[in-house]
């Protein structure tokens, strides 16, 4: 196996393992659009990195964290509905990023690589970023797991029982910003949210506890990476979208699977 392929598989699996548990929370908390918004803001980070001349990866992390903090600040405030505000920030930062990248006029910049990912070009340094950030994100998620789950079920009840709701929510948003920034390398800005929600949604059918759903989502995500990369190589299709297509097939198969969990609705 070629070295670039080994790196690609390692990067993809690294991201999928974190995206699984995090994506489960995104599904439970109905935050799919929020994930999309964070991802779109990443392009703005790249543009700022180009214009200011610092490391693009750091630019992406900074933009994602900045937008996550801004969203935490404006959550549930004002006369504009939450999803409208998300839509404005989501498409606003994407458009602003596209304009700013053009303005920076960097000839060597491959815009498509950012929009749809360039997993086959992942470097050893990228791998260190992905695994470093992934480890931090997983550890953070493990620490806040129980209170985050309690808040997800009922915020007032959790608060009345003494959960530090604001701190936990903020930590969750920061973890999500980190993962989105790392996942961008694999599937690109436009498809990051797919890597969060599709494996988690597919896992729902087979899970009877929250932890089962998180682990199964990570497995489905990892399988999608391997299957997607394989398909991409043999059919000569773009790698990032092929991974998402593989996850999509996984989701459709899960709908056909016999009902393990108790997802039946009364």
């Amino acid at each position: 196996m070629d070295e670039f392929l080994i790196r690609a598989v390692a990067a993809g699996i690294g991201v999928a393992v974190v995206a699984g548990p995090l994506g489960a929370f995104v599904v439970w908390r109905r935050m799919a659009f929020f994930g999309d918004t964070l991802a779109h803001s990443a392009l703005l980070g790249i543009a700022i990195g180009l214009l200011a001349g610092f490391n693009l990866t750091i630019g992406v992390f900074a933009a994602c964290i900045g937008v996550a903090l801004a969203l935490a600040g404006i959550r549930g405030r004002g006369a504009i509905a939450g999803d409208t505000m998300l839509g404005i920030i989501s498409h606003g930062t994407l458009a602003l990023g596209l304009v700013a990248v053009a303005f920076a006029g960097s000839a060597g910049l491959n815009l498509l690589a950012y929009l749809f990912g360039d997993i086959l070009a992942v470097t050893a340094i990228d791998l260190i970023w992905i695994y470093g950030v992934g480890a931090i994100a997983l550890a953070g998620l493990a620490i806040i797991w129980r209170p985050l789950l309690a808040i997800t079920v009922h915020e007032d009840l959790a608060a009345a029982e003494g959960a530090p709701v604001k701190t936990i929510n903020l930590t969750f948003m920061l973890v999500m910003a980190l993962v989105v920034a790392a996942a961008m390398k694999v599937v690109g800005i436009l498809l990051v949210a797919a890597l969060l929600i599709i494996p988690a949604a597919a896992a729902r059918q087979f899970a009877r506890t929250p932890e089962q759903m998180a682990v199964i989502a990570a497995l489905i995500g990892g399988l999608s990476v391997v299957a997607g990369l394989g398909g991409s190589l043999s059919l000569d299709t773009p790698a990032g979208p092929s991974i998402v297509v593989a996850a999509l097939f996984g989701f459709i198969l899960s709908l056909l699977a016999p009902n393990f969990g108790a997802s039946k609705q009364r």
Binding site: V27, W28, R30, R146, L149, A150, T152, V153, H154, D156, L157, A158, A160, E161, G162, A201, R204, A207, R208, T209, P210, Q212, M213, G261, A262, S263, Q265
Partner: peptide, 26 residues
């Protein structure tokens, strides 16, 4: 204080057995 909130709807996307719900409080 033991609190029992009104109208609690648990998202059907969340697989959660009753004993796990009980243990969420602390």
């Amino acid at each position: 204080i033991g609190y029992m909130p009104q109208r609690l709807v648990i998202a059907p996307t969340l697989p959660l057995p009753v004993h796990r719900f009980l243990a969420l409080g602390g």
